[in-house]
Nucleic acid binder design. Structure first.
Lengths: 260, 260
DNA sequence: ACAAAAGTGTTCCTCTTACACCCATGA
DNA sequence: TCATGGGTGTAAGAGGAACACTTTTGT
């Protein structure tokens, strides 16, 4: 039913070929102070590749799933959550991105037989809470400060760096920040998140003015409890206002949204 | 040297599998008035799939090249140009994105044998001129108004729409506009390009003010000749100023570059 | 009382907007 | 002389930047 014809191929150095396709996910979370990323372990030792070597969660793509489905499968496995914000970043297709030894490890671990693995980078955003942390801990995963990540296996450092850059770019133009916060959050939390992700500090009064006048968050009337300072009000994200604002502003007033 | 171990796999419905990987490129050009995209023909008839069916240029990835290399190979084949601006957009990995008949066509045409083709979308930007147009015409390709493209094969309409959306988003934040213009261009050309790509109209005086005060273009002192109106000055893009401006502005003054 | 974070206003200034006419050239 | 696009200035308003103190709560 599919293909039955195979052209006789000369033994050139470059031929059309099949690749194993995988996804690797940089899963970000925010603990109120710092941006965290979820790391797992290699799990299976192979020669001098240690079982403890840290890596990003990932998986091979299955026969009848799309790449985002594969990424969601990985996220569900390690966090227990469905419906996570997920965004594809780059594709890592260098034929030599994986060393021969790593290639052997992959084939052994995944029970496949291939000469090349092309991987697709994703970043995912989760609302961190104690439940998730307990879950990921049981799975042998840990949440690490993004700034302090070192020595991931293969090209996972590069995949992570790319994911972080994509998140930084996106958080200033789309409301992904709210994917990292609880449904109800304080303005202080929101500001800290921006500061942590973009790596800057923002004047509190100006921040409040801008975020409140934009209308994309609404006060709930609820306040923090049992905090040793003046309790902050909780706000919620206002999706409809955001989309309206984008459509009104972005197209009609191009020159205003134009940042050279 | 690579893998020699293959785990016995149970015959589940979803198994890890290999895919053929392809690239498809939306190649954009600007003729001074409208945004154009390069279309080619299917070329080989197969049953009711006609040789004239329009499609985006694309190719299977070869064994020892990366995806951007494959995309560049396609561009060189159809335009004769190297060093074209190239940007990856999305991956199209739906297992059913290609019908069975198209799948047969692919296998036949490419002389491969696979059950699945995952394709990676790219958009490319070229400086249109008569030389290029002659070249692409000899290759059987044509430059079509983006707005009037209809009925591309497989999911190429979707790939094109995605590429266009990516270009629209990018042109307002990075200087890709200059990839679509000759080295020396008039301010009018630049403005028309923005208008064509984003689909808006811009006040000429305000546009000049903003673009000139940004410093990212510099006058050459040369003027149009043989035009039946006041000759316009030619300008060139000023790369260094652009990068300096981005670094100064974007990080330090986040709140200003923030568009909710 | 004190520590810790919440919350609030104003001034200055830059940038955006809206808008209309004369200029240089080729036909 | 006419048609075509090139090129210019200003005033009003909006929004960003910089800046410090009072409030509320738990300990």
């Amino acid at each position: 039913m599919y293909c039955h014809i195979r052209k006789a191929m000369t033994n050139t150095k470059s031929i059309e070929t099949s690749s194993a396709l995988s996804v690797d996910c940089a899963v970000f979370g925010f603990d109120g102070k710092r941006l965290k990323v979820l790391l797992i372990k290699r799990k299976y030792q192979y020669d001098d590749l240690l079982a403890d070597d840290p890596k990003l969660p990932g998986a091979m793509i299955l026969e009848n799933e799309t790449l985002p489905e594969a990424a969601n499968r990985v996220l569900e496995e390690f966090t227990g959550l469905g419906n996570i914000y997920l965004k594809q970043t780059k594709i890592f297709s260098n034929p030599h991105r994986v060393s021969e030894k790593e290639m052997e490890w992959i084939c052994r671990f995944h029970g496949i037989n291939t000469r090349r693995v092309v991987t697709v980078g994703y970043y995912a955003l989760v609302k961190l809470n104690q439940g998730i942390i307990n879950y990921t801990t049981r799975k042998g995963a840990r949440w690490v400060d993004v700034d302090s990540v070192r020595n991931l296996i293969m090209d996972h450092m590069e995949i992570l760096a790319d994911a972080l850059a994509a998140l930084q770019a996106e958080i200033t133009h789309t409301p992904v920040a709210f994917e990292l916060l609880p449904k109800k959050f304080t303005i202080h939390q929101l500001q800290s998140l921006f500061e942590a992700v973009v790596g800057i500090s923002i004047d509190n009064r100006n921040f409040r003015k801008k975020i409140l006048s934009s209308g994309i968050i609404s006060p709930t009337g609820e306040f923090e409890k049992n905090v040793s300072h003046k309790p902050a009000q909780f706000y919620i994200f206002n999706k409809t206002v955001f989309h309206k604002a984008m459509n009104d502003k972005f197209k009609l007033n191009f020159i205003n949204n134009w940042t050279y």
